[in-house]
Design a protein around this nucleic acid. Structure first.
Length: 937
RNA sequence: GCGGGCGUGGCGGAACUGGUAGACGUGCUAGACUUAGGAUCUAGUGCCGCAAGGCGUGGGGGUUCGAUUCCCUCCGCCCGUACCA
């Protein structure tokens, strides 16, 4: 073997791993299990850029490390292959999304294999594969066949609910169901027709059809979930989104609101991510209060109900505000106010979601002419409508307390309504609201003189006793819309009979996507599946239409980690044995952008499956790490503004202040250390810099300007991992990506430092082969010094890896190789442990060196992680003063390569002190963690 | 507004529980080898100063023998979220 040849080595070992299925893993016990999961990618047409593998590299390093530590590691990869881009592409080109998806996956796999990941490729899954989505449909069926029992706080089979209906009706059932569910007795139930019964159970199921206000995106021709909408436009494509009432499949995620919240305390995720989920679920503790209408409408609706978190402020209520969409608005508005109110509602409708959000400052509203009575003191309270009150939260109505809430205060000031002080600690309420809970109540009837806690308690008891209110926990979380009016998704396994949905039989799954002539909505505005011929279920000689919408992108990704456990099972989504062996994901690595989407839905489905006994764990992902995004680092050239296009002039970045220039993106691949390759630039961009272009240089170089932006083609800042692998090798890329900075931090890609990493691997190589490419490894006994270097490194690497501090781990490896190099250490005993240490980071070179050291080829991943042994070597003794009982004394401090609490360490410390003191006795040796400090006179 | 996090050389970043700040890499400087260097190797490199020495972890204050680390305060930046009653 000659000099380090990354191409040859990587080709050789990737081939070996593939042929020998080195990383195939069995579901068998005997070793403790460890499950390392990457968020599987959507296979986009653009392929991978260097930012994508960051998390995969980290998870691969950890997987390989755990394997060396003796675990049976499951580390799979697959593809979230249903999605919008493939479908948009299909609309434009007519190509079936399955075809483009297949091509993209092939490309992804080859790119991933190029990086030397230890995936068990035999377990690969694709969500768009019928053998996979058959089980997504099956889970949908289980949801359809379940209801949520609030008493047991679990999802249970729908048959159990029907048994209760038959025995006692639904009057005393504590379940999650639709608001409009009528109450019926057992007798009434038995008298219902089969269809009526079915219709009633639909109100209880975990998934149900409802008329719901949804985010309709005309640009995409589909409904979007809340987490797919950002700033009033679609996350994908950036099309405007409007609110629209549509008939949709819904998922009763709200049943799990509290459990989703509680579960967060049991998982090791970052605080910020847990906090994002908590905010999304949005639990608030407060009270429902009924305000009686002064003039009841149609004898039925005689009150307005509000939700408040500050029931203690109820004596400060001076008006009430309803959302413009509130159902009572039309009924209570008086004749003389009707024109005003209708005008306001009309205007509110016209304002887009976006305008409404950006225009928070302007106060607007309209008086309905109606009044309600404060239940505490029977004060007459005017009722307004305003769009600062949202129909979708609470009851869509608020009791306004201008002295305690700034929005209410603004509204009161605008409409000249009174502001009543309610707490003696409130300050300056003439000029702004003061939301304090300090002090004692004033102007507050029965709670005068009380504190916040006392008042809240007293009021809730009073309200409950008088039956005009009650304590209540409210959540912001809404049930999830589950329908998408698109083609490239899982068909919903449901057909309709007399307008009611029925499940397909199990044996009819999968319900495969039909062929369609175009991937667009039909002429009548139905989803693309409306184009499929004979898209019907044939039962008992009749034909019933299938559901036309498909499932959302999150369906397939909400359970995929179970499929990896047993990917080829045709009897179940995974066998009981596989599930009870692998249980849950020990380490999950992925981006933080899935905080309120995938990560929430997955937890929801997992809890559901746990309730129904299909899986074991309440939480699917024990530990979660969010890798930071790798941004692009764009390079710019500066063209001097001029009309002479035939002879453009470009100035180097340092000189541009002297000119009037236009910055232009330049391809980062022809820029090295910010220096532009001028000739390559001329050749690649004849459109802007032809033969005649002139370059004003600094120190003979053209320096480019730099800006950090998202990595994208249009910014010419995309770096393809294939190019890096070709030039430096996968091992270098892997190490360099880890070396860039802390895993969780966002950072711009910068190829500048990569040579240093490459040099490191060559230095490593030179510990085995000298400059003339001769083998120099010997069997000699390592010296004390050499062992110290090795064991210091083992200790450090282990601590760093356990703490996911891969950047400092890599640094330590570099130090180790440098030190062994300057010690001229070519000893087999040391080098074979070093190779194992390096193997998670640079598996190809490690495998090669492992083999040339005389080990069985291809077994470095089965080696044992070296054990750190204390070396009892002390250096770097230094003095510092310490104050003991008011007297300043001198103290010695030094690092010990040993457990500082061990006897050996103490003996060594004493010896060192003796030497330092030249024989005089030390007064006392104090052992402290990490150092041994000796206090002397 | 609210929530989470951050602020250290020219740059990316180290410093574990308060104990030699700036590891490691890059960049820069000098030297060696060389027809050449955008290859390789060696040495130096926080700032000021010829030096002795002084100053240094966003600003100010505090605790401590000792503070990048703990406390108070101000400033700045990033991420998430938002008329949530």
């Amino acid at each position: 073997m000659g000099a380090y040849n990354h191409k040859e080595i990587e080709r050789k070992w990737q081939g070996f791993w593939s042929e020998n299925e080195t990383y195939k893993v069995d579901n068998k016990a005997g070793k403790p299990k460890y499950y390392v999961l990457d968020m599987f990618p959507y296979p986009s047409g653009a392929g991978l850029h260097v930012g994508h593998p960051l998390g995969y590299i980290a998870s691969d390093i950890y997987s390989r490390y755990k394997r060396l530590k003796g675990y049976n590691v499951l580390h799979p990869m697959g593809f979230d292959s249903f999605g919008l881009p493939a479908e948009q592409y299909a609309i434009q080109t007519g190509q079936h999304p399955a075809v483009t998806t297949e091509n993209n996956i092939t490309r992804y796999i080859s790119q991933l294999k190029n990086l030397g990941f230890s995936y068990d490729w035999s377990r690969e899954v694709r969500t768009s594969d019928p053998s996979y989505y058959r089980w997504t449909q099956w889970i949908f069926a289980q949801l359809f066949n379940s209801w949520y029992n609030r008493n047991t706080d679990k999802a249970e089979p729908i048959e159990d609910l029907i048994l209760i209906f038959e025995k006692e009706g639904n009057g005393s059932i504590n379940a999650c169901c639709d608001d409009d569910t009528p109450i019926f007795s057992a007798n009434e139930w038995r008298a219902f027709s089969g269809e009526e019964k079915h219709a009633l159970t639909l109100k209880y199921r975990m998934t149900y059809v409802a008329e719901a206000t949804v985010n309709w995106c005309a640009g995409l021709g589909s409904v979007l979930s809340n987490d797919e909408v950002k700033d009033g436009v679609s996350e994908r494509g950036g099309f405007p989104v409007e609110q629209k009432l549509m008939r949709q499949w819904m998922m009763r995620i709200t049943a799990y609101a509290q459990r989703l919240l509680d579960g967060l305390d049991t998982v090791e995720w970052t605080d910020s991510l847990k906090e994002q989920q908590r905010n999304w679920i949005g639990r608030s503790v407060g009270a429902m209060v009924r305000f009686e209408l002064e003039k009841p409408v149609d004898g039925k609706d005689n009150f307005v109900e509000v939700f408040t978190t500050r029931v203690d402020t109820i004596y400060g209520v001076t008006f009430m505000v309803l959302a413009p969409e509130h159902e009572l608005v039309a009924k209570i508005t008086t004749a003389e106010q009707r024109a005003d109110v209708e005008q306001y509602i009309e205007n509110a409708k016209k304002r887009s979601e976006r305008d409404r959000m950006s225009d928070v400052k302007t106060v607007s509203g309209a008086f309905t002419g109606a009044y309600v009575l404060n239940p505490l003191n029977s004060e007459k309270i005017p009722v307004f409508i305003a769009d600062y009150v949202l129909a979708g939260y609470g009851t869509g109505a608020v009791m306004a307390v201008p002295s305690g809430d700034q929005r209410d205060w603004n509204f009161a000031r605008h409409f000249d309504l009174p502001v009543i002080q309610i707490l003696d600690a409130q300050k300056d309420i003439e000029n702004e609201a003061d939301a304090t809970k300090e002090g004692r109540y004033v102007n507050s009837g029965m709670i005068d003189g009380m504190t916040f806690a006392e008042a809240t308690q007293a009021l809730i008891s009073w309200l409950e006793e008088k039956q005009v209110g009650n304590g209540k926990v409210n959540y912001r979380l809404r049930d999830a819309v589950f329908s998408r009016q698109r083609y490239w998704g899982e068909p919903v396994p449901v057909y309709f009979k007399n307008g009611l949905p029925y499940l397909l039989e199990d044996e009819d799954l999968p319900l495969e996507l039909p062929v369609v002539d175009k991937y667009l909505p039909t002429a009548t505005g139905e989803p693309p599946l409306g184009r499929a011929e004979n898209w019907q279920n044939h039962v008992d000689g009749n034909s019933y239409n299938y559901e036309l919408s498909t499932m959302p992108g999150w369906a397939g990704s909400s359970w995929y980690w179970y499929r990896y456990m047993d990917p080829h099972n045709t009897e179940a989504f995974a066998s009981k044995e596989a599930i009870s062996y692998w249980q849950d994901v020990d380490l999950y690595i992925g981006g933080t952008e899935h905080a309120t989407g995938h990560l929430l839905y997955s937890r929801f489905w997992n809890k559901f499956m746990k309730d129904r006994g299909f899986v074991i764990k309440e939480e699917p992902f024990k530990k979660l790490i969010n890798q930071g995004m790798i941004q692009g680092r764009s390079s710019f050239v500066y063209r001097v503004k001029s009309d002479n296009y035939s002879r453009p002039v470009f100035v180097s970045a340092g000189l541009k202040p002297a000119y009037d220039v236009t910055p232009l993106h330049v391809d980062v691949n022809i820029v090295t250390n910010d220096v532009l390759d001028v000739e390559a630039f001329k050749l690649s961009r004849p459109d802007i810099a032809g033969e005649n272009a002139e370059f004003v240089l600094e120190d003979g170089k053209y320096i480019c300007g730099v800006e950090v932006e998202k990595m994208s083609k249009s910014k010419f800042n995309v770096v393809n991992p294939d190019d890096i692998v070709d030039k430096y090798g996968a091992d270098t890329l892997r190490i360099y990506e880890m070396f860039l900075g802390p895993l969780e931090q966002a950072k711009p890609w910068n190829t500048n430092g990569i040579d240093g990493t490459f040099r490191f691997l060559r230095k490593l190589w030179r510990l085995f082969y000298n400059d003339t490419e001769q083998w120099v490894v010997t069997d000699a006994e390592p010296s004390k010094e050499e062992l110290k270097v090795l064991h210091k490194t083992i200790k450090k690497i282990e601590a760093d890896i356990e703490g996911f501090s891969f950047n400092t781990a890599v640094s330590s490896l570099m130090v180790c190789v440098n030190e062994l190099g300057s010690l001229k250490c070519h000893k087999k005993a040391v080098l074979s442990e070093l190779v194992v240490l390096i193997s998670p980071y640079a598996p190809h070179i490690a495998e090669e060196l492992w083999a040339v050291l005389g080990n069985q080829p291809g077994t470095v991943s089965d080696a044992t992680f070296p054990q750190w042994e204390p070396q009892y070597v002390i250096d770097d003794v230094f003095e510092y003063p310490v104050q003991i009982n008011g007297k300043v004394r001198t103290s010695l401090s030094f690092a010990v390569d040993a457990d500082p609490k061990s006897i050996e360490a103490e003996v060594l410390a004493n010896e060192t002190v003796q030497k330092w003191m030249e024989g005089k006795p030390a007064r006392k040796v104090i052992v402290v963690p990490k150092r041994i400090v000796n206090v002397v006179i």
